[in-house]
Amino acid sequence: MPADGTRVTAFMLVKTTPEWLAMTVAERVLAFTTQVVPVIEARAHGVRSRFYDTEFYSARVTDVWVWEADDHDAYRLLIDALRETPFWDRYFHVVDLLVGIENGYARTYDLEPVATLTT
């Protein structure tokens, strides 16, 4: 994480396209690992991702991809890279992007973050 704490988290809400769903699982893995991942790795650094399936709870959004970038520039480079791959609007429609900074309010008001922890 950068010294100034400007890590950016983006919740990318996407919906699969008929083209993506027409592929077999093996074809999807091959497409993602050969057409999308290399472009991200070549263009964006300091970005991590996690993927959540939501199609069994939502008809509008089939997946939520969480991207954590070290800063706004790394996030911008990620989006630029994704837009140059079949991921963007060919395999998935980007329904919405929710981008934020964790505990931004605490940084703004010089407060300790409020969080819950249950066991």
Rank of each mutant, 00 (worst) to 15 (best):
P113H: 06
D110Y: 04
L111G: 00
T16K: 14
E41H: 08
A31E: 02
L117C: 07
M23Q: 13
L13M: 13
D89A: 15
P2N: 15
R50V: 00
T34R: 09
K15H: 10
H45T: 12
A10K: 11
R7C: 03
E55T: 04
V25T: 11
V95M: 07
S58K: 10
E68Q: 13
L117E: 09
T33D: 08
D70A: 10
M23R: 12
G5H: 01
N103G: 05
F92G: 09
A106I: 01
L98S: 08
L77P: 01
F11Q: 09
L97K: 10
M1A: 15
V39P: 10
R7P: 02
A74R: 07
Y91R: 01
A26N: 12
G104E: 13
L97C: 03
G5E: 07
V29R: 12
Y57S: 09
V95D: 11
V66M: 14
T62L: 01
L117D: 06
A106M: 03
V95K: 13
E102P: 01
V47W: 02
Y52E: 08
R28V: 02
P18L: 12
H93T: 14
A115N: 01
F32L: 08
R90V: 15
D80L: 12
R90I: 14
M12D: 10
E19K: 12
T24F: 00
M1S: 13
A44V: 02
H93Q: 06
A26C: 05
G100E: 08
P2V: 11
L111N: 00
T116F: 08
R28T: 05
D80G: 12
R83N: 06
F51H: 05
V61L: 03
T34I: 02
V64H: 00
V94R: 07
R28A: 06
F87A: 13
V8S: 01
D70H: 05
D73A: 15
V99Q: 01
T118K: 07
Y109L: 08
